[in-house]
């Protein structure tokens, strides 16, 4: 079944352990970037493996494909010509400089490793989760964050 990366904003402390785990997995550049919303929240940005992936649609060389079973959107470094169309197409800005530097492959959810993605395994607070759509509806991922946000805005 297709699983997704989920961030629990209540628990993400912006430590970037996920980034370093990803970086070391690929021995290159990390595919997950932790972005800060001031000090109120942190938002680790990784590929969403979209249902209807715009990066895939934008690619003129059919270098990007989506696996029907796992839902993983991956990019073939052989077919990619580095035109950067996908970078502009991705609405979440997760592709950023990766393609420009010609690093093979984007986030591929760690190729469906049976223990789950490394960023998730490494996350010290458990903020990053790897869940099925059904599981996602059952967890709360940012209830406390919403109240904290109001508190910080007031100040």
């Amino acid at each position: 079944m297709q699983k997704r990366l989920v961030v629990d904003l209540d628990y993400c402390i912006g430590c970037k352990s996920c980034s370093s785990a990803c970086k070391l997995t690929f021995k290159g550049e990390n595919r997950i970037v932790v972005s800060g919303v001031e000090t109120v929240a942190y938002l680790p940005l990784a590929c969403r493996h979209c249902e209807d992936a715009l990066c895939l649609r934008a690619c003129p060389k059919e270098a990007i494909s989506k696996d029907k079973e796992t839902g993983i959107v991956s990019r073939s470094s052989f077919k990619c010509v580095g035109c950067t169309s996908c970078i502009y197409a991705c609405p979440f800005g997760v592709l950023d400089s990766m393609l420009l530097r010609h690093i093979p492959d984007k986030c591929n959810l760690c190729k469906g490793d049976e223990d789950g993605p490394n960023c998730v395994s490494s996350c010290p607070t458990g903020a990053l989760k790897f869940l099925t759509d059904e599981e996602i509806t059952k967890v709360q991922v940012g209830k406390q964050f919403v109240s904290r946000l109001a508190f910080w805005r007031r100040k």
């Binding site: 352990s17 490394n118 490494s122």
Partner: peptide, 24 residues
């Protein structure tokens, strides 16, 4: 070579960035 994130210890195999650097 690299890390295998096994769920052991009080940290349940989770590491900070520093710990991720063990192999290097």
């Amino acid at each position: 070579v690299d890390i295998k994130y096994s769920k052991s210890g009080a940290n349940e195999g989770r590491l900070c960035s520093r710990g991720n650097a063990l192999p290097i």
